[in-house]
Write a protein that binds this DNA or RNA. Structure first.
Lengths: 178, 178
DNA sequence: GGAATTAAAGACCATTTGGTCTATATATCA
DNA sequence: TGATATATAGACCAAATGGTCTTTAATTCC
């Protein structure tokens, strides 16, 4: 997973994968079939990680606003410094392969939907608790947040400065939270 | 430019470029040096197009809020349907090459700064005209908008539905405009 | 210990990659 | 028309690509 993450699909060559998996050529093909299948497994794993992380951050037993703060703080972290420069396997794959690989399309599309649903759920709990600013509607606000964090990852590739990311996140949240 | 735009740097092979430019191998190398230089020229052109488009949309002689609406409408358009699926050369390049190609880093970093500056300028004019919601600060709001639109491009790769994009943009603008 | 299974190393393959070079055709200009 | 410059087509190149296969080593099981 890590190799694809750092370099992208096309830029990752077989030797890179062999080095990373410490497998021989034969064993790698016996275990995973081919490069594409291995990539799909990596992507699945990456997505599963992201989703479980969100489930922790946005746990229904926590204060929803705290959860959203934690969720966004995670993105600040992942778009700062070396993490930022490394980028995001999901966004990179979306830009590199979406529209040309049906399987990838499915994975990524469903991930964005799942993420949006989780954020929307947290937002509606926040709304029920009277913590949302007037006129904020959870579902569209969730879509805004999803776009925003993915955009952060893009901008974070070239300008991964923690303080401005954090300030930007705070400013955004400020428009939604009472 | 169009070939790189549709397929990305690594996925674009020499034959693709020959077909697109209608040049022979020899002529292409005589004219552009190599694949990398040609790519850089494409990227420059793409960026120049984007910047002049923004200069029109956010023209200081127009109402700043109208300008911002036009600017965002452009992104709705570019992230919907076939346009959305095609994606964005800039975002794709950021994810594919940033951090591995100094020239690309420079181009993209300066583009984001330029875009942010233009948006910030429009926002501060809007603020001066009393059109901004309380507590909105132009520079951080500009950063938010830049991240948001770039995120739209990412999400638009797999879910390029115009109505939801438009609704999301409207909902976001609603948090900033009085 | 010895047979059988498993995995590692890497030779090997066809194809494709980016890039060069030569031979031919086309256009330019005196 | 005839000499010269220009651009074409495409042969050609070494290197790298993803993928297979055989040979050798290590492990497992009886």
């Amino acid at each position: 997973m890590n190799v694809f993450w750092s370099r992208g699909y096309h830029a990752t060559a077989l030797p890179d994968l062999l080095r990373a998996t410490k497998l021989s050529r034969g064993s790698l093909y016996a275990a995973f079939g081919d490069k594409h299948s291995l990539f799909l497994r990596s992507l699945d794993r990456y997505i599963a990680n992201a989703l479980t992380r969100m489930d922790i951050e946005l746990d229904p037993r926590r204060e929803p606003v705290d959860g959203l703060r934690a969720y966004l703080a995670g993105y600040v972290d992942r778009t700062s410094g070396a993490n930022g420069r490394r980028g995001c396997l999901l966004v990179a794959t979306a830009m590199e392969l979406a529209g040309q690989d049906a399987e990838v399309d499915r994975c990524i599309g469903s991930f964005f939907k799942a993420m949006e649903a989780r954020v929307a759920h947290a937002l509606s709990r926040a709304k029920a608790a009277g913590k949302l600013a007037d006129g904020v509607e959870p579902s569209s606000a969730a879509r805004i947040l999803v776009c925003f964090v993915e955009g952060l990852r893009v901008v974070g590739k070239t300008a991964p400065t923690r303080i401005t990311s954090q300030a930007t996140v705070d400013a955004l949240l400020d428009r939604f939270i009472r």
